[in-house]
Design a protein around this nucleic acid. Structure first.
Lengths: 325, 325
DNA sequence: CTGTTAGCGCATTCAG
DNA sequence: CTGAATGCGCTAACAG
């Protein structure tokens, strides 16, 4: 495999001239340019990008940290990231962490070690204090609200969306309202818990611990949950489900068990996944694709502008009324 | 950001000694080793992996080519790849091509340009002739049957699985059997078409062009298809659906339209996705996770052993009987 | 418009 | 056990 020097020799020019044509610089005489092209063809020359990365100090690659790729929620975000990356010729390095801090740290190391130029963290286990330490090595953007730190973020308002959904359920006559989350101890869960208690209180109702269900992420989790709910002495009549996959699981299981939706149990999902449309589930569109796309744009802007500033970006959401309430 | 030379100075040793402790080599006196650690801490030294990649001629990264990440089928395969990659400390570079040959070619270039050490192609648009050209630059593994080329592959037998499913439907009394695919002109589609015609003929039945439906990949496609089928003059009574998402879309739409499954329309899905279990869809488990995992193992073995040989690996499948037939 | 040269940061022979 | 020296392949000042 020839290098640039041999190529230059073969073309009868200097390495810098070769480099110029390789990088499309102007000010190269046409015949020399052609000679280089000829030589490239003849020697089957291919550039070693690792050398380019070394000398440029950048790789045109950004890392994406997420617990698992095979998931409708994360998939939608990554898709958004990827579409933007494509447009500016950036690569995506994927890190499936399974929420293991050890793996998350390894991904952070990629930024420190200059394997990636920036990092997007879709969901995490590590503390912000831990993550913050790596901000010195390059831009990091989280897909959750983060303030007062050297970290950027894109997010939608969990509090407001919960509030809106709760008020909607209340207006439809529901007084026994519960909700589901994935991890009880995540940042968004704390916000949601607060919104849950405060909103219900302000409406003159009350939230109950027994109506809060965790470990709900996948379709199957919804099915399991339905069985749990129908065996409760004092079940909620409505559920705010943070994820359409789970809402779909609940819906399908409900049909099997003869539970009527919305009469026996009302549901509001989240993410506006295709399946919620098909099943007629009322949901909140939080524009996951756009969250991913915007996360990339923020990173890209920070890289391009070499700025150390931080961006905080809130995206809107929309309640989509269908027939599960 | 200090480099290895400054670090060596600070530690009072040579760069080679630093390099040795950095790479965990033996034969370094303990006090010098400690001195290096101290200096690393003090200078906040971090290694530039691009230099390592350059000098080693490898990046510990493999590229993954797929049309889109946000998809149950591809997601499952990528997950399998990622799990294996994690175990041996390899990174994954993701390339969402949207089946655009231009993007696929860009991904192939990553192998040529030494950005990745190997490539896994989950699904493609480019011809094998085009892809084959890049085999000289590093190992390439496809997730489909490929023979007589310098390319490795993992796959399950589309022909045999179609055959098995058709015989099963036939044994249940179906005589008007159709099937769905995503892209009509993909390699697997050709195999399936052959299996479809030959198997039905051997059973004394016949296939019909009108019972073959393409552009079926997502959930919504299944819903659209159901409407198409119920408006047909001469609809099939059973459908072999290559993808549980589509089968799920069909099933859910059928419930809405009052179409009885399996009585009005029988279904056999593919991929054994969670949703097929929930909806009671009879399906074929083709072990997508394992296909991804094995694809990585093959690539990894070829990289480790520096061999130019090629691996062809067939994985088994299993018909999972549920209640949609 | 072009060539010379000095790095980019690290691994690794080869002598000690 | 250790250090000096060489090279990985390329870019970009700098001097023509």
């Amino acid at each position: 495999m020839p290098n640039i020097k041999q190529l230059a020799e073969a073309a009868g020019v200097s390495v810098s001239t070769v480099s110029r044509v390789l990088n499309g610089h102007p000010y190269v005489r046409e015949d020399k340019r052609q000679a280089v092209y000829k030589a490239i063809e003849r020697l089957q020359y291919t550039r070693n990008m690792n050398a380019v990365h070394l000398v440029k100090g950048a790789t045109q690659t950004i890392g994406v940290i997420l617990p698992q790729i095979n998931n409708a929620y994360f998939g939608k975000v990554v898709e958004g990231i990827g579409q933007q990356a494509l447009q500016v010729n950036y690569q995506l390095m994927l890190c499936q962490t399974g929420y293991r801090t050890h793996e998350e740290r390894k991904a952070l190391h990629m930024l420190r070690d200059k394997i990636v130029d920036g990092l997007i963290i879709i969901s995490r286990s590590l503390s912000l204090n831990q993550i913050e330490k790596y901000a010195a090595y390059g831009p990091i953007t989280l897909c959750e609200e983060v303030r007062g730190r050297p970290l950027s973020c894109v997010y939608f308002d969990h509090y407001a969306s919960f509030q809106k959904a709760l008020i909607y359920l209340w207006s439809k006559g529901h007084r026994r309202i519960g909700y589901t989350v994935n991890r009880r101890n995540s940042a968004s869960s704390a916000t949601r818990h607060k919104a849950y208690l405060e909103t219900l209180a302000s409406l003159g109702g009350e939230g109950r611990e027994a109506w809060i269900f965790d470990n709900c992420l996948h379709l199957e989790d919804g099915a399991v949950l339905l069985n749990k709910i129908i065996s409760m002495d004092d079940p909620p009549t409505a559920l705010l489900v943070t994820g359409d996959q789970v809402a779909a699981g609940l819906t399908i299981a409900a049909q099997k068990q003869g539970v009527q939706i919305p009469d026996d149990l009302a549901l509001i999902g989240l993410d506006n996944q295709p399946i919620s449309k098909l099943l007629g589930i009322t949901t909140i569109d939080n524009r996951l694709n756009e969250i991913g796309a915007e996360a990339f744009r923020i990173i890209y802007r920070h890289i391009s502008e070499q700025t150390d500033s931080t961006t905080i970006q809130e995206l809107g959401f929309k309640l989509i009324e269908r027939s599960s309430v």
